[in-house]
Design a protein around this nucleic acid. Structure first.
Lengths: 336, 336
DNA sequence: ATGAAAGCGCTAACAG
DNA sequence: CTGTTAGCGCTTTCAT
């Protein structure tokens, strides 16, 4: 079933059918009605490929998501797709594995579908300028603002929290509650990614308070998984590491840390406090509710779309917005 | 940049470039190398639309997911995409909202992209035959085997647990642990969907054990959300409903129920036991770990792909596989 | 207000 | 082994 068949069935030309399909003017109402009727009867749906080939240009953007399982991302995706739709853009959701190269994927997605822009969720940004330039359309990154400065900030945009500041806030809160021995659970202290930034915030807060960051307070687990976070905290407890609070650099890590503590017989927050960052929905249902720094993900998602479309419509220098992460007090931190 | 430009740059014809692109034979090795080199230098990526228009047929299928936020689905998606890739199919991930019509979406997706099949994650199947037939390619449903028999089973396939049996197992387990007053938390007792099936399993187990299913044991919340489950259990406790155990018909519902119990001062499993169904990863990190009936999601995902491809390659009657849900004992159920 | 016809970028015979 | 050419299904001038 093609547009041609519909045209034949209606006794009109293909251009008329095309006009109806695209809500264009210059079609008499009764003709329009008749064509619509046949289209519905036949459950006709135009072939996307043909449309995108023929259209000189189409408003569309892609969303590259690293790990659909990450609740923080998947909670954001819905908002992004919704907002894109509202603004008249068609969207492509593309999930990649953690081992994939998001820049390469974004570049080919953009080319293979003539996308006008891409939004990147996750992935580090420790890239060369040349790599980024492979993507020849505007880019908005929702998670990392290229703090390490490898890439000139003119060639991409971003909306995100200030990871270092959020971590600083989290740890400062623990300190204000009287904690001095604060462990940090993270993938790596120098991965040029979110983990490193949040670690810097941790160090800053500790240092300002005159607290020592000793080796046994650093639980580096290699990745962002809950398994490794759990194993890391468990091992730390087994080697009798001493701390009264744990800062998990993501909610998932903080939650896994809570479980490890609990399994080792530690009451939370009685014997050890825990704080995270991200504010994923699930944290509210944990026992105890996790205290965390909430990323305003609706704002991030909305602004990402708006900035992207702005950049598409009038290309410029690349804008970088920082949104504030807010402390949400749960039940996992106790004053000591 | 098109295939034509590449051809010109290499001094060959477009067909030669096309052959190289598609790994076809009959291209001299040195020509192939030269073309490949130019393709890489130019970061050339063929236009998807043109390819799918020109290709007589292409191996591809779509995955329609109702709510990317649902961990049970998103955990499965990864396996499905992976398996599809291994079997040489390209895949389309399409997320829909809970208010969308998955059958209609599947039908137009299939048509607009010439898909050879679709896998449906979520959504009830209380449809007319005519609706289903709109999808003119094989369908595999991973969550619901059309128990209510509205749709002839020849026109679609499925892989899933037996929801009623799983619920029966869960409740029987509670009963074997000495529980007699067992509440059920669910969206609805008659929504012609998973909720109703699992409710039937609950009733069966209760009845066989000679236990009464009184009204105050049924906590119907209207939807699958954690919010409503939490509110429902809270309200039940406030009106002094008496039970020693809760069966949440999904893990998310069970987890929300635990939180409501905990917030009301109930120790779990000390004062009230909780069991769920699904086996999402997160349950292992809750305190206490949720006891649940695990859906073998890797098996479901893999079989779904295999059945779909089987049906694509040699159309038949529709196959319906049932996989077993396994009890995973956590810490949320206590013998009384 | 409607139709005819020229592509969009690629693949797939077919010819050589 | 390589090139030529006719579409794939649609949009978009340009006529009418």
């Amino acid at each position: 079933m093609t547009i041609k068949d519909i045209a034949a069935k209606c006794g009109v030309s293909v251009s008329t059918v095309s006009r109806v399909l695209n809500n264009q003017p210059y079609v008499k109402q009764d003709v329009r009605d008749k064509v619509m009727k046949v289209i519905e009867e036949e459950h006709f749906v135009p072939h996307e490929g043909a449309v995108s080939l023929a259209k000189t240009q189409e408003d569309s953007f892609g969303v590259i998501i690293r790990g659909i399982n990450n609740p923080f991302f998947s909670e954001m995706v819905t908002v992004i797709l919704q907002r894109g739709h509202e603004m008249g853009y068609s969207t492509y959701l593309h999930q990649i594995r953690s081992c994939d190269d998001e820049i390469g994927e974004a570049a080919s997605l953009a080319k293979s579908r003539k996308l006008k822009g891409v939004i990147l969720l996750g992935g580090n940004f420790d890239r060369t300028e040349e790599e980024i330039r492979q993507i020849d359309v505007p880019i908005v990154c929702c998670t990392f603002t290229n703090k390490f400065g490898v890439v000139p900030k003119e060639i991409f945009s971003s909306v995100s929290i200030d990871d270092e500041a959020a971590a600083y806030k989290a740890v400062s809160y623990l300190i204000s509650e009287g904690h001095k021995k604060i462990a940090v659970v993270l993938p790596s202290v120098d991965d040029k990614s979110i983990s490193e930034l949040r670690y810097m915030g941790y160090c800053k807060a500790m240092k300002e308070a005159g607290l020592a960051v000793t080796d046994d307070l650093i639980i580096a687990t290699g990745d962002y998984s809950m398994e490794e976070a759990y194993a890391g905290v468990k091992a730390a407890l087994e080697r009798k590491a001493k701390f009264t609070a744990i800062f998990g650099i993501s909610d998932l890590i903080a939650l896994a840390s809570m479980k490890a503590l609990s399994d080792a017989g530690y009451k939370i927050p009685g014997k050890c406090s825990v704080i995270g960052i991200d504010g994923i929905d699930m944290t509210s249902y944990f026992i105890p509710t996790l205290t965390t720094l909430v990323q305003p993900r609706d704002v991030i998602a909305q602004r990402a779309v708006e900035i992207l479309i702005g950049a598409i419509e009038e290309p410029g220098e690349g804008t970088h917005e920082i949104v504030e992460a807010q402390l949400r007090i749960g039940e996992s931190v106790k004053k000591i």
